[in-house]
Design a protein around this nucleic acid. Sequence first.
DNA 1: TAACAATAGTTGCATATGCAAATATACACT
DNA 2: AGTGTATATTTGCATATGCAACTATTGTTA
Lengths: 144, 144
Amino acid sequence: MQAENNKIGYYLERTTRLVKLNFHQAFKNAGFNITPEQWVILDILNSQNGLSQSDLAEQSFKDAPSISRIIDTLARKSFVERKPVKNDRRKFEIFLTEDGIKTVKALTPLVNKLRNQSWQGLSKEDYTKFLKIINKIFDNMSKE
Amino acid sequence: MQAENNKIGYYLERTTRLVKLNFHQAFKNAGFNITPEQWVILDILNSQNGLSQSDLAEQSFKDAPSISRIIDTLARKSFVERKPVKNDRRKFEIFLTEDGIKTVKALTPLVNKLRNQSWQGLSKEDYTKFLKIINKIFDNMSKE
DNA sequence: TAACAATAGTTGCATATGCAAATATACACT
DNA sequence: AGTGTATATTTGCATATGCAACTATTGTTA
């Protein structure tokens, strides 16, 4: 396809930004000082506690420095803690703290509500189609 | 729709990030020190030279501080210049410089190539559908 | 006209990202 | 064992964004 796919980047970018903004503000309104990026990490750890930073990097599709600094912030806020790994002293395993677990529990309904809101008026078919297309774009941009 | 729309935010975010990365690297490989965000502004100015910063903010869906700083960078690199407005001394009109114009001309084919690449294997119908859905998400997140 | 509100832009602070370079540790191979 | 390579994480630098606060100027209106 040519010439028609004019402003995909623009629509992608502004929508992503707005979605993140909504999540961030909802967290803030609920009394939680957490960014969407931090939420993603907490959410992953909630289903797989004790991942290493490089595991987290892979699962969140971020690079090592980004994860390193997000973990810094989450640790500073006492949502997670780094535990050294016995067999490999280069690594840390990252665990949710009590407070981290509570926070994920508290925010999960809010996140579901926002997800539903973002998808209002759209169908299951739309979802399938959208995922197919966006992941095709992702693949198209992944090759050299 | 419920419960199914699980990871839209994640797919949006990682795809947007990858698209921007591809554009940035392509610019760099072509010898241009320009970010995708800076490109968007140059591209808008190329079709409407002399917009004010608040016009640019509106058209690019960014806030005033973001535009202010992007213009700072573009001006420092001599791609644009701020011209004071006679009737309203609060305002600047932003103009592409010679170099800015040359740069847009040089990068346009590259941008088109990348747009085509991102849309490879997808149809005009996919495009319509995708735009409908992503803009619906945008609207859903725009209301209070 | 004086006071107040609105508009245009800038600046400071916190966060996130990409990249390159650095450190520390583990692994592999001769 | 010793050298070189790979892996895990951190740090520095540049850029972008959201938000709040600030300055300067313009508009409104009592």
